[in-house]
Amino acid sequence: MPLLETQGLTKVFGGLHAIDDLDLHIEEGEIVSVIGPNGAGKTTFFNLVSGMIQPDSGKILFEGIDLVGLAPHQILELGIARTFQNVRLFQNMTVLENAMVGQHARTRSGPIRAILRTPGFRAEEEAIRRKAEEALAFFGTRLIGYRLEQPAFVLSYANRRRLEIARAMATEPKLLLLDEPTAGMNPRETLELTELIARLRDEKGFTICLIEHDMRVVRGVSDRVICLDYGRKIAEGTYHEVATNERVIEAYLGTKAVEGV
């Protein structure tokens, strides 16, 4: 059974089919890249999977459970975490607090235990902090040390992207959805992040699905590439297969040339 599978998924925005009868699957342990020209429905796909919007028809099965109709926090609890194309951090919370929010769905203590500061509460807080710091430490020294107590808005752009990934990691997901993780990064940072995505799978065991425009990244990390256009899957396979697919090239030439081929 695939980890994630969609069957006949459809989402219409004002007559426009953002996602049109989409069938795709992601196996456990894979790194899958979703590519496609602007407006192909990639981010809509992520929004559907993470429960931020509801599909008009079709199913989204995660480990056999249909996600349609579930609240986003329930989906996260099942093990799907995501990042955002336009980096959406909790700006006025500290770096550490941002990552600690990731642990929210994995912990239970409520207001009464918080007020009484029970031993169980303290142990849980300690564990939340440890896991958050662990996730932050994955990025070397960039997000730890004095940075822990800084509000997120002071971070540099690249660090904000890293923090967003760390926050998603702290939710202990099975499937990690990364929406253009290297957008706006310089070549050196992009390279670093490409290696990091591979490490995320190898060391942490996450299954990863990423939306990416930078074909060097796609080539570097993907086990499999899926190309969307007008909400439909037009090609699927290894990077090489997809990159040489006629329909893919055609779809891209309509808007912009395939980079790096």
Binding site: S50, G51, M52, A71, P72, H73, L76, E77, A81, R82, F84, R88, F90, V101, G102, H104, A105, R106, R167, A168, T171
Partner: peptide, 10 residues
């Protein structure tokens, strides 16, 4: 919306 996606039951 982001809080909800990050697991906060709003």
């Amino acid at each position: 919306p982001v809080a909800e996606v990050m697991g906060v039951d709003v």
